[in-house]
């Protein structure tokens, strides 16, 4: 009798734990971030026609840095700034953790550039330009551009307009990461055509089946980045 009771109790506990884990609608955070869903979609999977990026499954550390950046004005966006202005670090960390553990979904994006442009983009992404000591994007963002835990974002599943606007913002100084701001350094060394080629190629990449950001790496990055611990 006592055994039976214990077993029932254990099952109940297990069920309760399952109930609080992952993408359960009862997760209180799901309701707290409803305000974000209008632009970033349910659970951070933004719609194909939305300019706002998908944020589902990006490394939580990266998302947390971006939230702090919007709140403190390092990264400029009127709506994001107004939304986050009076939220504590702890709350932003929890929001980042929530989105970091959502499942992303592939949004189809047909190629919109010539084969020559795409080839140039691919070359820069995969090999960089040794003559100009320009590191390959893949050297930091991972071979498959899926990002690296805890602070380097994946680049797939984003619109090319959005990617272009970010590189442009780094180049003209309106987006900042903690110093040394490696992305600002790289973006300033790219020409407008190179940025167009890189973003066009990245936007054609499909999200593979296994798309989690790679685990933390021990070897140093090819360039110093203040945002990466």
């Amino acid at each position: 009798m006592k055994k039976r009771f214990q077993a029932a109790w254990l099952t109940a506990l297990l069920l309760a734990c399952a109930g609080t884990a992952g993408a359960n609608p009862a997760d209180p955070m799901a309701e707290r971030v409803q305000a974000c869903a209008g632009c970033h979609g349910e659970e951070g999977r933004s719609a194909a026609e939305s300019y706002a990026p998908s944020i589902a499954g990006k490394p939580a550390g990266y998302l947390y840095q971006q939230l702090l950046g919007f709140r403190d004005g390092r990264r400029k966006h009127a709506v994001m700034q107004q939304m986050l202005a009076w939220l504590s670090d702890d709350y932003l960390r929890d929001m980042a953790a929530y989105y970091g553990t959502r499942e992303p979904a592939q949004v189809p994006r047909p190629p919109r550039a010539t084969a020559a442009v795409l080839a140039r983009g691919r070359q820069l992404v995969e090999q960089g330009d040794a003559a100009r000591r320009l590191p390959a994007c893949a050297a930091c963002h991972g071979d498959q551009l899926l990002g690296v835990q805890p602070a380097i974002p994946g680049l797939l599943n984003l619109r090319d307009e959005y990617l272009q606007a970010q590189l442009g913002a780094w180049r003209n100084g309106s987006r900042h990461a903690p110093a040394p701001d490696c992305m600002a350094d790289i973006a300033r060394r790219l020409s407008g055509e190179e940025i167009a080629a890189i973003t066009a190629w990245i936007a054609t990449r499909e999200l593979p089946q296994e798309h989690r950001p790679a685990p933390r790496r021990d070897q140093p990055l090819p360039i110093d980045c203040g945002g990466v611990p």
């Binding site: 309701e31 707290r32 971030v33 409803q34 305000a35 974000c36 869903a37 209008g38 632009c39 300019y51 709506v79 107004q82 939304m83 939220l87 504590s88 702890d90 709350y91 929890d94």
Partner: peptide
């Protein structure tokens, strides 16, 4: 500590 939010409707 974790208040709820209101979405932006500027784009919608």
């Amino acid at each position: 500590p974790q208040p709820h939010g209101m979405p932006s409707f500027a784009q919608r």
